[in-house]
């Protein structure tokens, strides 16, 4: 499958800056303005322009959602790898599900242009130890999948339509994983 809509931009155009110029400049004046006169005009007119010391602009809600989704998928990939390394007998069932989480992660990452001052996570935020029993490991995976379903269903409510569909599809995939994992309990 290839959900392939446009990437989400990390920052938005400074609309206030443009609006500040519009009432004062006619088109011909703008065309005549040189690279040296425009800064002088900005100073005289009181337009501050972007403040380089103000720090990076705030992240859009879609970028914040994507970063959270990337972190969640990275954690799931870590947990699957841990379970496979500790209980190799589970590998035939878990590897296909792991591959799908890696596909989710790649698709989520492809939607983000790395925002200024904020890097896209590459490492898990949690590294739970897989101990106890094989059944316990499967239970942990099921719980993690259920949490991921819930988080994606919540995330899609306010997201852009293309992202909402991606989150919904990932949630549906994770719901099928819960069923696949339930088969390991039987």
């Amino acid at each position: 499958m290839t959900p392939n809509p446009p990437r989400v931009a990390a920052r938005t155009v400074n609309a206030g800056f443009v609006a500040c110029l519009e009432p004062m400049l006619r088109r011909r004046q703008l065309l005549a303005a040189s690279i040296t006169t425009v800064p002088a005009f900005l100073v005289l007119s009181g337009c501050a322009g972007p403040d380089p010391l103000a720090g990076p602009p705030p992240l859009s809600p879609d970028v914040r959602g994507l970063l959270a989704a990337v972190t969640a998928e990275t954690n799931l990939v870590f947990l699957y790898n841990e379970c496979i390394s500790v209980y190799s007998g589970l590998a035939p069932t878990l590897r296909p599900l792991l591959a799908e989480h890696e596909a989710h992660l790649a698709q989520l990452r492809s939607r983000i242009i790395e925002p200024p001052g904020k890097s896209v996570p590459t490492k898990p935020s949690a590294r739970p130890r897989v101990t106890g029993s094989q059944q316990g490991a499967v239970t942990s995976l099921s719980a993690a999948e259920r949490s991921a379903v819930t988080a994606n269903l919540h995330r899609l409510l306010a997201a852009a339509p293309d992202l909402a569909q991606l989150y919904a599809s990932i949630a549906a995939s994770e719901a099928t994983h819960v069923t696949a994992l339930a088969g390991l309990h039987q």
Binding site: M1, T2, A103, S169, S173, A180
Partner: peptide, 10 residues
Amino acid sequence: TTAFPGFPES
């Protein structure tokens, strides 16, 4: 299972 239910297969 599939990674992206609802989306066409690539």
